[in-house]
Structures are given as structure tokens and as C-alpha cells.
């Protein structure tokens, strides 16, 4: 991507991140983070390090216990009906998909389009068909998510998040539980989205993904951060990751480290 100035789409200042299950419990403290339009961030951390909670805050689904979180310039604490347009500029892919099992794959994907009533039926239909085709889900259109393997459920979740053409895409552990072929496919697809895909009208997408295995994500133009011991640290580019002194980073790169059990 070019190095020209890009507007900030996500900004956290001294934000204390609470846990979803117990909102009074701080899982990450004092987060200072700024994501500019067109960036691709990978946030790494071990299990229970607060990756999902951080993304929930970034999407405006939770509000920080302290500090501020702004999405497209709008404070997430103020998110309500009036800010729905800002909310819809963010797409969220949950770990495991969190699909609606009573709906078919096609219904899951079209649900946000059908709910936002400014879309008419032909538009909804053509958008759903396009998403099914691009994500190779057409054979499963009438299946329910429960009957699909985890690999395909992850794609359905991605298709659902892309339905409203978000500008910022947040993915929680998108590679978790995927087979090798599906991992490769997803990484390539995310790269296409980041550069500008037909599904997003050719517009480059800002992407933030979390992971517990950094080895799958090397790329010179991606930015990296790590969550460790309730602290959020920006690492920089891939070269900085490899030379980072953090013990946690070496673990996330699966390098041999001294462990004490």
C-alpha cells in the first residue's frame, strides 16, 4: 500500500479492556493503538490474553472501562441507533463463526442485507449470490451451518461480515481450526480484500486479525502487535517481529524458549 497519509479508522487511547464474561475484570490495560485506513494488522496473543475482548471493543460491541475507543471518529461509548451507519462500516468475523443455526447458509449471509431495509430484493439476491460464488459456498447455500465442517463455517461467517461492504474488517482467530488448504485460501482472500476486491467495489479494506500463531502471517506490509500479561504492545513490521525481545512473541513464533512449569 502507498505511504501517503490515510485517515485513522480505529483509535484507542488509554483504553482498559474488560472481559465479555465479566465486564468489570480488566484483561488488557492502557491500550494506545491507532489503525489507519488501508492497514492490515495482526494482533497476536496466547489463549485468554484478551484478543477477542480487544476486537469486541474495536467493533463497538463493548465499551472500555477507562479511556476511549473511537471508530471512524465516533466514540463507541455513544454508539446507538443514530450511529448505525458508523457501526455498519465495521465487519466482524467471530471465532467459530457464531452463525445462526436455524437459518440456511444463504439466509445467514443475506440476513444483514434483509434487515437493513434500504436494500431491495433483487439487490439482496444478487449480492448474496456473488458472496456465495466468491467464497465457493454455492453448493452449501441451502444447508444449515450445523451440517458444515468448521472450514466452511468460517467462510460463511466471512461472507456474512462482507455482506454490507464494510470498510474495516475485524477477524477473531480466522485461521483457528482450519485445514491447510483453507488456511492458504483464506490468507490469499484476505490479501485480495486488503488490496481491493470486487466484493468491496475495488476499494482497499482495512483489516485487523487476531492469532495465536504468528508463523502463518509473515508479510512485509502488515503491522503486528502482541498481547501479553495484560499489555498491548505494537511490534511494527514483520522484521521487527522476528527481532522482538518479547518472550511471548517467541512462543507465538513457536521458537524454542525456556519454560518454567
Amino acid at each position: 500500500m502507498s505511504e501517503t497519509f490515510q485517515p485513522v479508522v480505529l483509535e484507542m487511547s488509554a483504553a482498559s479492556i474488560g472481559a465479555l464474561r465479566d465486564t468489570s475484570h480488566v484483561v488488557v490495560a492502557d491500550v494506545n493503538w491507532s489503525v489507519a485506513a488501508g492497514e492490515f494488522w495482526v494482533v497476536a496473543g496466547q489463549q485468554q490474553s484478551g484478543k477477542s475482548d480487544l476486537l469486541m471493543h474495536a467493533a463497538g460491541l463493548m465499551t472500555p472501562l477507562q479511556g476511549s475507543c473511537r471508530v471512524f471518529g465516533c466514540e463507541t461509548r455513544d454508539f446507538g441507533e443514530a450511529q448505525i451507519a458508523e457501526r455498519l462500516r465495521v465487519g466482524f468475523v467471530f471465532a467459530g463463526g457464531k452463525l445462526f443455526n436455524q437459518l440456511t447458509v444463504a439466509e445467514n449471509i443475506s440476513l444483514p442485507l434483509r434487515y437493513q431495509s434500504h436494500h431491495n430484493l433483487p439487490e439482496i439476491s444478487s449480492r448474496t449470490v456473488a458472496l456465495l460464488e466468491w467464497l465457493e459456498l454455492t453448493p452449501f447455500a441451502d444447508s444449515t451451518p450445523a451440517s458444515l465442517a468448521a472450514n466452511w463455517r468460517q467462510r460463511v461467517a466471512l461472507a456474512r461480515a462482507l455482506a454490507l461492504q464494510p470498510e474495516l474488517l475485524l477477524l477473531d482467530q480466522p485461521l483457528g481450526g482450519l485445514g491447510t488448504r483453507h488456511r492458504q485460501w483464506l490468507l490469499q482472500f484476505l490479501d485480495q480484500l486488503w488490496r481491493g476486491h470486487e466484493l468491496s467495489g475495488g476499494r482497499p479494506m482495512t483489516i485487523v486479525a487476531t492469532t495465536d500463531d504468528l508463523r502463518a502471517w509473515p508479510h512485509p506490509q502488515r503491522k503486528f502487535a502482541v498481547l501479553d500479561r495484560k499489555t498491548f504492545s505494537v511490534l511494527g513490521a514483520w522484521d521487527d517481529v522476528k527481532s522482538a525481545p518479547h518472550h511471548a512473541v517467541k512462543e507465538l513464533l513457536a521458537e524454542p524458549v525456556e519454560t518454567t512449569i
Binding site: 465479555l20 469486541m56 460491541l61 467471530f94 457464531k98 445462526f100 444483514p112 434487515y115 454490507l164
Partner: peptide
């Protein structure tokens, strides 16, 4: 328990309405 309420909110769908 399965997080469907959060999924609805993430899609801009009011869980009370839906």
C-alpha cells in the same frame, strides 16, 4: 450462551427487535 446476540449486534441488528 453461543454468542448469537453479539453476532446480531455486530450486524447492526437490534436483538430486541429481532
Amino acid at each position: 450462551a453461543l454468542g448469537e446476540v453479539e453476532a446480531l449486534e455486530a450486524l447492526g441488528i437490534d436483538p430486541v427487535h429481532y
